[in-house]
Amino acid sequence: MTAWSLARKANRKRTDAIQKFVIYLILIAGAVIVLFPFLWTFSTSLKTPDQVYQIPPQMIPDPADPLNYARVLVDRPFARWMLNSLFVVVVSTVGTLLSCSLAAFAFSRLRWPLRDKLFLVLLATMMLPTQVTLIPTFILFKELGWINTYFPITLPAWFARNAFYVFLLRQFFMTIPLDLDDAARMDGASHLQVYWRIILPMSKPALGVAALMFAQFKWREFLAPLIYLNRTDSLTAAVGLRTFMDETHGTDWELMMAANIMFMLPVVIVFFFTQRYMIQGVVITGVKG
């Protein structure tokens, strides 16, 4: 009996080891595929214009020209654009998390009239291509005097404008057992308290995922800031990045790529340092099914 279970354990250990090895192999191969284009981007960001147009292409530019980064920062107000983006991202992410999680709670854990019909409406708002609501929305914001301000790209976030995140959080909330709510209600907690004291703390990974995805979406958002911001100084980085590209007069790839590296660096750093907290933080608190 013991011998048999020991053998089984050893066997399990061996298959585990093989499995781990295969996983590492896949992960490393995938990582190389994913990373290579980024290395290429980085390599291009260090080239001189004539090196960019060299065939066969050079992987390691010789001589390298780190001045491209300085030019992006000095010639164009790229640092300023990144700060603008940071402002927009922070303000609208807080708003989105609050308003969307409230709505998601209402849609997933409370019963109220028209709830399911309104949820369909909510889904439907994501289904119309934005290109055709662009002009009516522009007119609306113009009447409000919001052109050339950050209101059009931050304030709607406080009203759960991005239905995507209501939907996402609703789905996450639905994986949490309802008994928890009932128990808390029994102890006299209000619905708002259930939301704030039970569901939100239990949904840290979900909120983390939503925050990160929204922040990253907002960081990259292009169309709305393009339309509503006019002053060069007030542009966001995603729009500023596109100004390096020009089909008529040609793109300065080396500058574009240097800007690109700087554009994605903050997000990668934030992700790297938060993913552990966000994804593993909750295992400790655990969900007692």
Binding site: I135, F138, K142, L226, I227, T232
Partner: peptide
């Protein structure tokens, strides 16, 4: 002069939105 600088690929999208919206 206030210079409104728009990325080339989406210039017409923005300009036409502005004009259609009366700005």
């Amino acid at each position: 002069i206030e210079f409104i600088h728009t990325p080339g690929s989406e210039y017409m999208t923005k300009l036409q939105t502005q004009l259609a919206g009366g700005d």
